[in-house]
Write a protein that binds this DNA or RNA. Structure first.
Lengths: 222, 222
DNA sequence: GATAGACTGTCAACTTGTTTACATTTAGTG
DNA sequence: CACTAAATGTAAACAAGTTGACAGTCTATC
């Protein structure tokens, strides 16, 4: 592994929170893999080979029906880790993962992690914390799909992707936004147009500029 | 705690799989509570007070929107445990839980469990296994909602509730089945009627008799 | 700066499920 | 047995999204 990759890894927040010894051990077994745009990272049903950490780029986590429809569960940003459920229970992958753009991932092999966990309860605890976080996200997503309208869900998904200060542009195509929200591209367009007429957003090519995040927030806060 | 309750507890599969000493310790701190029909067990957003085990009766796990719509996430049967995510991460309850019928629950206080976990890695592992199971269920539910039709989801939900041999009667009203599947009572009725005309099921008062589980299985297996 | 490919705008026909409304059946209870 | 509350049957009007089709727009890149 290159020196520069080790640097990037040791700065990763999740790893940085671990005891120095455990962190060093994990970094020493980490493999760095580069994925081209659209390349598959792993498939639903696959073996629990390891823990994946996104160093740079972007990864789409999705599932597909037999009919070929795809739904996007989430899009991961650099710094995030995934695949922990397979590490913990040995079960198969729950989703497909694809690189949206050229991406660099760290892969910690399952056996190595389990080995470190045995000697380091902190690492095990960190894995469990990751799982808890993802589990809560899943519950939130279920609630959203059953209790909120497409318009409300779209507002949520957009706001998740805006920096904390509440303004800025979310770079995503209308088709992808639709897949993330669970509606068609055409419906996505209609909702965005409605919002634009109220000056809550501005539609830009391959993106949405948030002008009034408070208004979007209000959609599902009452 | 009464002697008879201790007996019931020690026969519980999840507890029975734990080392004898840990099991005894957990049983000694367990509180048994009886809930009347429709009584609330806990609410979404509540404190992570403990791990709940259903000894007898039935519990509905659900969430509600601001508008008052309720969706049923699952119905628990005796022997099942829930509430582990709050034990592990200290976060708030993810769902509401209500007793469907008069039910008896064992509650293991959070502090006591964490204490036992420290001395007993087996217990911690069992909690994590429970969380993994629930997390995978959540992912499956999300897939189901986004990728399958109401008819397919209804078939899945019904089949989950039939004994393994593939025939029998599922005791549930059409309204509740609807809430579980995410459709209205009227749509539920329409789907069931369609199935009955094909002799896949028979509609009975407050229940559905499965006649051809293979046919239902086929709905989402191709 | 031409051009291809991806993205967006827009519409009408269609599908699916909800809502509203009311009649009917069922099971339990005094 | 009569009565009541819950559950079920059914249909028309309505709402919300999807699909398919096609024209227009943007961006990278050759």
């Amino acid at each position: 592994m290159r020196e520069i990759d080790k640097m990037a890894l040791s700065k990763n927040p999740w790893l940085a929170a671990l005891p120095a010894r455990a962190r060093a051990e994990l970094i020493s077994v980490a493999k760095i893999r580069r994925f081209a745009e659209h390349e598959r990272v792993h498939s639903k049903g696959g073996e629990p080979d390891g823990l994946y950490g996104l160093l740079s780029g972007e990864v789409r986590v999705s599932a597909s029906s037999y009919a070929g429809d795809e739904i996007v569960f989430t899009r991961l940003r650099p710094g995030q880790w995934f695949g922990e459920i397979g590490i913990l229970d040995g079960g198969e992958k729950t989703h497909d993962a694809h690189a949206v753009a050229m991406s660099e991932l760290a892969i910690l092999p399952r056996k190595a992690i389990l080995d470190v966990c045995l000697r380091n309860p902190e690492v095990h605890r960190a894995l469990v914390a990751l799982l808890c976080e993802h589990c809560r996200l899943a519950f939130t997503a279920i609630d959203a799909f059953l209790l909120y309208s497409p318009e409300q869900r779209m507002a949520q998904r957009l706001l998740e992707r805006v920096p904390a200060d509440g303004s800025g542009t979310v770079a995503i195509s209308q088709s992808e936004l639709g897949a993330l929200v669970g509606v068609s591209r055409q419906s996505t367009n209609k909702i965005l147009k409605r919002w634009e007429s109220r000056v809550w957003i501005r539609r830009v090519y391959r993106g949405v500029e948030i002008c009034d995040s408070a208004a979007l927030q209000k959609l599902f806060a009452d």
